Computed example of a mutant assay.
Amino acid sequence: MSPRIPLRRALFFGAACTSAAAVLAVAPTGPAAATPTTPPPAGDVVAVATTPQLQAALTNAAPGQTIKLAAGTYRGSFVTTKAGTAAKPITLSGPANAVLINDGPAGEAPDCPAPTAGWDSGYGLWLANAPYWHLTGFTVQESKKGIVADGSPHTVIDGVTVHHIDEEAIHFRRSSADSVLENSSISYTGLVQPGYGEGVYLGSAGSNWGCHGNSGGVDRGDRIQVLGNHIGPFVAAEPIDVKEGTSAGLIRGNTFDGRGISGENSADSWIDVKGIGYTIEGNTGTFAPPGTFANGYENHNPATAPSFPNGCGNVWRNNKSDLGGVGAYAIKISSVSKCAADPNVVHASNTVANAKSGLTNIPVTP
Rank of each mutant, 00 (worst) to 15 (best):
D44I: 11
N318F: 11
N319V: 05
G358D: 10
T351M: 12
P52D: 12
D166Y: 06
L191S: 03
P52A: 13
W133D: 04
P309N: 06
G94L: 08
R173I: 09
N361A: 13
A177Y: 05
P115V: 11
S184E: 09
V46P: 00
V180E: 09
V218R: 03
H212G: 01
T136N: 13
E167L: 15
K88Y: 00
L58T: 02
T189S: 14
S269M: 12
T351K: 10
F256C: 05
A330D: 11
A49V: 00
T35C: 11
G190Y: 04
T284M: 07
K338F: 10
L54G: 05
N301R: 09
M1W: 01
S93R: 15
F308M: 12
P40A: 15
L127S: 05
L92K: 07
N361C: 12
F287Q: 07
W119D: 03
I333T: 06
P6L: 13
D178M: 05
D322A: 10
H163G: 06
K68A: 15
I67D: 05
F256E: 03
N129H: 13
A70Y: 00
W209R: 02
V346R: 02
N310L: 07
K320Q: 14
P36L: 13
G122M: 06
I261H: 03
H230C: 08
S143N: 04
K243A: 08
V99A: 10
T255A: 13
